[in-house]
């Protein structure tokens, strides 16, 4: 079964940029059946207050990895929405035109319900990009001023129903997160984040349908072997597993 890993960080804190490191990662992914790896950038390199120059540096690093294996990696453009419309639009245009990036990645620079998200979503609309929003239940973490709860991702999706959104981290969002986005057809959920809670994937399929879930590992902090086995070892049907591991992401991200 071919697999797409739709949530990876091949470069993390500047590790993973060298040719031998990239070779090793690709070899490992291919050994486990990963056909495409979707990279999201070195999104914690400078904390949560990235300058425009630092954003460019992260996206350029992503492009370097993509250039080494153009038939294996696709990257999302990492943004800091707080830098404003001009910076956001300029960086998206640069990353799409120069590197062919296929989506927008948002981490913890701000909460997804903040007003600064408007130009980000406009950029996604203009360049027909998918937006991947880091999302994690804030029930216990309590960082909601800058850290997005699944309820905030749902607010974002409700405001922009024409923009496809990936709510990252099924485990971090949990049962409540699944229910927050249940009625929002423009939201897909990726399977990454934390230990693979027993039964949560099946719960997500029951409430969202298998077509709205895509496989992601969140490597390097997590492992591809675990994320794949979470799907393959679930009680889902072969067809549902295949959609989660490959077809849904292939369709959403135009990956053949």
């Amino acid at each position: 079964m071919s697999i797409i890993d739709a949530h990876t960080h091949p470069v993390m804190f500047k590790r993973g940029l060298t040719r031998p490191e990239v070779d090793r990662l690709v070899k490992h992914g291919r050994t486990l059946g990963v056909r495409w790896m979707v990279g999201l950038g070195d999104v914690l390199l400078y904390g949560r207050n990235f300058t425009a120059e630092q954003i460019v540096e992260v996206n350029d690093d992503s492009a370097k990895v993509q250039a080494m294996y153009p038939d294996y990696f696709r990257f999302f453009c990492f943004l800091n929405p707080r830098l404003g419309e001009k910076a956001v639009m300029g960086e998206v245009e640069r990353c799409v035109d120069k590197y062919g990036f296929i989506g927008i990645k948002l981490e913890i620079c701000n909460n997804a319900r903040d007003a600064c998200m408007k130009p980000v979503m406009e950029a996604a609309r203009r360049w027909k990009l998918v937006v991947l929003q880091h999302s994690w239940s804030q029930t216990n973490i309590r960082q909601r001023s800058f850290h997005t709860d699944p309820a905030d991702t749902a607010t974002l999706a409700r405001r922009h129903p024409d923009v496809p959104i990936i709510m990252a981290h099924l485990t971090g969002c949990g049962v409540r997160g699944v229910l927050e986005v249940k009625e929002l057809d423009n939201v897909t959920v990726d399977t990454s984040g934390g230990l693979a809670d027993e039964g949560l994937l099946e719960y997500a399929v029951e409430h969202l349908g298998a077509n709205r879930i895509i496989h992601g590992s969140d490597l390097p902090g997590r492992s591809i072997g675990v994320s794949i086995q979470r799907v393959l070892g679930s009680r889902l049907s072969v067809s549902e597993k295949e959609r989660i591991l490959f077809s849904n992401a292939a369709r959403l991200l135009n990956l053949g």
Binding site: R24, K27, H28, L32, L195, A196, D197, E198, L201, S223, I224, G225, V226, S227, I228, Q229, R230, L232, G233, S234
Partner: peptide, 17 residues
């Protein structure tokens, strides 16, 4: 951590390079 965590997923850790 069965039954709280997927045993199948945990077994994937041994695939680490």
């Amino acid at each position: 951590l069965t039954p709280l965590v997927s045993a199948a997923a945990q077994s994937g850790k041994l695939c680490a390079p």
